[in-house]
Amino acid sequence: MAENYRKYLDPRTLSKLQGLEIKARLIVEGFVSGLHKSPYHGFSIEFAEHREYVPGDDLRHVDWKVFGRSDRYYLKQYEEETNFGCYILLDTSESMRYRSEQAVLSKLEYAQHIAAAIAYLVLQQRDAIGLATYDNSLRQFIRASSHASQIKPLCHVMEESPAAGELSMGPIFHETAERIKKRGLVVILSDLFDDVTSLMHGLKHLRYRRHEVIVLHTIDPAEQDFPFEDPTLFKGLEGLPEQLTEPRALRAAYREEFEQFLHEVRKGCRDMHMDYALLRTDQPLNVALSSYLAGRSQHMHKT
């Protein structure tokens, strides 16, 4: 089991991510409201323990008194900062199985890595994390919990989820929106290969439930670049038909279609004030995460 953890929680990746924080952008109602300051005014809650400073930590949280005494940098850490709950919606449809020659990981593997990393991060911050896997229906659903051992069932579920079935996101989002009662952060990991309109409807429902939504759009580099040269028989996943083509002749048209799709998704997310990031499976995992999280953090500071 330990090896499995390691698989998902690559120390190298996590060493770069540890100091960064995921914060809810919107006002999150605390489970214990008295324990929380207004999210707009900082951070402090009930003190829990000290932790040694590592480069990358916010200097604001350095305990200068301790520094004065011991000449060492310690961070103050707090217990139960919020009752912030995070749900990861992981797409396990058949299309996520795809892996091109350029990529090391399939889209699903890549998404699992990221999901695990986020889960670990969230748990480190004592926040609750939940997971839903789905294709055309909700397959697995793990309620959010901030218990440190939560990571185990999550990883287990993710490992056990086969990539199968067609994707139908709209209804899933509706269902999820209904099932997640508490407002929180919803991280969607998917290639979003579904009808854009119904996808947007589903997202809208989530947003209507006042969830903060982060769309991590996971695609394979080949899907964006279409680098094929030879006549190829493309076998459609998710029940789509086969297609024999001359990829050279089609490349421009395909790219145009794909960029159009990306543009629509991106635009839809922006319109609904959701965060959106395009993750290509050939990008290093940490780069993908940290670039997003850095942007996220920056965004928070601005607000």
């Binding site: 795809y98 290969f193 695609i219 493309f234 996943l237 998710e238 789509l240 038909p241 794909f258 799709f261």
Partner: peptide, 10 residues
């Protein structure tokens, strides 16, 4: 090859 982004190809 298997292909996920079939709809765009079609």
């Amino acid at each position: 090859t298997e292909w996920a982004a079939m709809r765009f190809l079609i």
